[in-house]
Design a binder for these strands. Structure first.
Lengths: 157, 157
DNA sequence: AGAATAAGTAGCAAAATGAAACCGATGCGA
DNA sequence: TCGCATCGGTTTCATTTTGCTACTTATTCT
């Protein structure tokens, strides 16, 4: 088997040095993250993904293939003779914080004040608290208190 | 002017109850989050966004307009007679955690082991630590320890 | 065995994207 | 103040990507 690790996109990366851009190159289309969302919520089969997302079948085929090629999903023969299933890899499960922040932003900004929406809860049924970026010293971080340090070709100085 | 608040997409939402899906409807295309990334990094003008992202000019026009319509960016006449600029709104700045988790996932999974990439640092130049979802009790949360609670049409029971 | 279901494919129309040229309104130096 | 460069787009047109609606093949069920 080749290396499933990063898996370079066809022409090249949109912006090779930026991790945000690379992530978006891999999962930043209209559907991939919804597929991952549903995988986290228990979906395994083609039909189940199709039913939950409502995505067109040919596009779903393509996305499942790309996510697999990029190491986010893996195909696995199910226990009892069933057809094969798509399961999240470690990298796929690691998208949890991304889905969580997308969810929380949506809850704050994409619904009218009293409008109902699904929520994420833990084992005890308690609502998952807002994720807040903090620095090593515990201070809350935002766009104004951080900045991107570009990489010189050589090691970080 | 209508209400800038959420700003319903044309036909309707992909999945009206899901905050993840709504967020992706608003900013989940190939470019919007890169525009927001650059806005957080100081870009203000059309040309500056164009130069940094490399996006086609007509598409950039469209994205800036949509982000503005959705309340992520706002147009502002600059101080000294300059042309008008695009600045992040509160909702836009609140996308910081989303960009951060995308960045951190990319750092972990979209680069070869020793490959260099830009990093996010705080005021002191210290690398921003990984964002970890935790429950109210402080336990680390992931896809296996949480689940989505769907909203019945009526109030939560 | 026969029917229903799963998992795709194929073909085609519609929508989104990208590249390049074009354009009017500043801004700016001589 | 004239002339040129720049900014912030718009237009046009070709290429890609989506989304539908069949159609197909392999399982699974009864």
């Amino acid at each position: 088997m080749p290396r499933p690790s990063p898996g370079t996109p066809s022409p090249a990366w949109t912006d090779p040095d930026c991790p945000v851009a690379r992530t978006l190159d891999l999962v930043g289309d209209r559907w991939s993250l919804l597929v991952v969302r549903d995988a986290m919520d228990g979906a395994r089969s083609f039909t189940e993904f199709q039913r939950r997302t409502g995505i067109a079948r040919n596009i779903l085929t393509d996305r499942l293939r790309k996510l697999t090629a990029h190491g986010v999903l893996a195909q696995q023969a199910a226990s009892s003779g069933r057809r094969l299933q798509y399961v999240l890899t470690d990298a796929g499960r690691d998208l949890f914080p991304v889905l969580l922040t997308l969810r929380q932003w949506g809850e704050r900004h994409a619904f009218e004040p009293g409008e109902p929406h699904s929520t994420l809860v833990d084992r005890h049924g308690t609502r998952v608290p807002d994720l807040r970026p903090t620095g090593a010293d515990g201070a809350v971080l935002d766009a104004d208190t951080t900045h991107v340090r570009k990489t010189g070709g050589e090691g970080q100085r």
